[in-house]
Amino acid sequence: MPTTMVAQSLASGILVGALYGLAAVGLSLVFGVTKILNVSHGELLMLGGYTSFWLFTLFGVDPFAGIPLSMFALVIIGLIVYQLLFSRLIKLPTEDKIRTSLLVGFGLGLMLQNIALRLWTADNRGITPSYAGAVLTVLGVRLPYVRVASLVIAFVFLLALQLFLQKTYTGKAIRATAQDWEAATLMGINVHRVYLLSFVLGTALAGAAGTLVAVGYSVEPVMGLHWTLKALIVLVMGGIGSIAGTLIGGLILGVTESAAAVWISGNYRHVVGLAIFILVLLIRPQGLFGAKEG
């Protein structure tokens, strides 16, 4: 097999893997803090993608410039979804909360998927700004500019989130609440506000990820479950509460999938990730890089 082909597949894997990481980190944040396992995260990501699709086709907003807008849209949606649905589960004991949130998320995902189907039809949609086709070629490896930019942006988001959680008072309050909400309450932290903030932060990140997916790849109504699974796989590989672990998990998943596509068949690229996922679940349920805080 020619080296460039290997390099090409490695590069594509890394490019898509960064997006997996970004998609997963929102889910991870929400789950780590609130113990809500929101399996409609993929659908929220999809809505982020369609938001920038609309912004681009209706108003000509550049997708990268539109990221804050699609994040804002997802903040609003996140607020509604949290206040209307998930906040009702917040006081349940952890096990019940996870179980019920899985069901609610499942139903919500179905709903959002069908709303998207009505609004945007079943077609694959992509965002194609003037520079969409531009490709950077390094040693024979083709790197589309938009995907490289997406990679950089994903890294920036993850780094910013890391700094926010480590350095700011609010970030520390979020980490404290994730570890022991009762002790956090005794510090004078309003944990309900922390829950809301974390949830909305998670959906905002889904919005950003959705935009990057729409510009580098494409969006369609059925993509939600697909992306939720990607995020869950990464979550299980990277462990909860570790942003670095999430990023590495995302990159590994991306690269493995690309490798599978080259060596097995493109049809099986998504199966390989799922198979790894099951294996990790069974062999190391705390995640490969499981840095469960505490």
Partner: peptide, 25 residues
């Protein structure tokens, strides 16, 4: 301000971060 049974310090954080969180209000 209550010190709960067993202390319940935030084990994943540094001593200083724990103290900083104490002064959250």
């Amino acid at each position: 301000v209550q010190v709960p049974e067993g202390g319940r310090v935030f084990t994943g954080m540094s001593v200083q971060e724990n103290l900083e969180l104490g002064a959250f209000t």
